[in-house]
Amino acid sequence: MSGELLKPPAIVPYRGPSAAQWGMLAFLLSEVAFFSTLIMVYLVFLGADTQEGGRGGPTPAGVLSLGLVIGTTICLLSSSATIHLAERALRRGEETAFRLWWTATIVLGVVFLAGTAYEWRELIAQGLTVRRNLFGTTYYTLVGFHGVHVTVGAIVMSIVLALALRRQVTARNPHGVELVSWYWHFVDGVWVVVFAVVYVVGR
């Protein structure tokens, strides 16, 4: 072979997700680990208050009502649809439609938060606090951290909206919008699990 210059095989260009997309996926993986822990702890302590050595007090069956939470759940889940529509509109260059769907997503998120706030007020009125018992401790922690994620999402989306209004988010740079929508879908997905655990299995 010596003397002859070998020709390497042609380079196959990389076509996978971008670095930013990988970054968001990695971040969401860490969030999965975080929420898994909270959910696991919620399940471990389910019913602990009524056992020997427990603190009694409000139980999930006693104080959680489905009516309101089904409404807020519908809001949150439909916000996944609206953010998808917003993203699609942006990719097609329909900036007005993007801004409308995007705003709708924010509004639905805020409605969800308002619903949670109302629910918490009712629960506190019925004596369920973090201090009261393990149900309170684990319920507010799990639902609260989900709520924090919804809040962060709403804030980030509002910032994007402000940028969009200043014509800084357009069809030419939809990548940020795409990543925010991934985050939002994730937060909605977490809620499906939290809803199933807290309001269906745990109640």
Binding site: T37, V41, F45, Q51, R55, V130, N133, T141
Partner: peptide
């Protein structure tokens, strides 16, 4: 993240009166 979650629970126990790790109250 599981450690972070567990540490947050420690802080909640200490600052908010939560009961995650206190066996006397079912934790």
């Amino acid at each position: 993240p599981p450690l972070t979650a567990a540490l947050i629970m420690v802080v909640f126990d200490r600052q908010l009166g939560a009961h995650f790790f206190d066996a006397q109250t079912g934790g």
